[in-house]
Simulated assay, not measured.
Amino acid sequence: MLYWALLFFVIALASGALGFSGIASASSGIAQILFFLFVALFAASIVAGLFRRR
């Protein structure tokens, strides 16, 4: 999932540099959502791993 967030971030940077502001805005929004979803799932897996060991 982090791979997809980074991919959309790179697409947003490239399209922003080329002047496609609509595509850049959409790509950065998708990248932001995927990144925060990745962070939330990562934190949940760490917490679940801590409780599983005990």
Rank of each mutant, 00 (worst) to 15 (best):
L2D: 11
V39W: 08
F8N: 10
L7P: 00
V10W: 10
G29L: 05
A26V: 08
G16Q: 00
L41Q: 12
L41M: 14
S15E: 11
A40M: 08
L13F: 08
R53G: 14
Q32R: 12
V10Y: 09
I30W: 01
S15F: 07
V47A: 14
A14T: 11
S21E: 13
I30A: 08
L37A: 11
Y3N: 09
L6N: 12
G29E: 04
S21D: 13
R53T: 12
G22F: 07
Q32E: 13
F9A: 13
L50W: 14
G49S: 09
R53Y: 14
A17F: 05
A43H: 11
G49K: 02
Q32N: 12
A40C: 09
S28W: 02
S25A: 14
S27C: 06
F51H: 11
I30S: 04
F38E: 11
Q32P: 01
I11Y: 09
A31F: 00
L7S: 10
L34E: 02
I23Q: 03
F42I: 05
R52E: 15
L34A: 02
F51C: 11
I46E: 05
V39S: 06
S15Y: 04
A14R: 06
Y3Q: 13
M1I: 09
F42C: 06
I46V: 15
V47P: 03
G22R: 06
S28T: 08
R52P: 06
A17Y: 05
A26N: 05
A26H: 04
F38M: 08
F9Q: 09
F8G: 00
M1T: 11
L18A: 13
G29M: 08
R53D: 15
F8W: 09
L37N: 08
F51Y: 12
F42G: 05
A12P: 00
G29W: 02
I46W: 06
G19P: 01
L37G: 00
S21P: 01
S15A: 07
F38C: 07
A12R: 00
A26T: 12
L6K: 08
S45Q: 12
G16L: 00
L50N: 15
S28A: 07
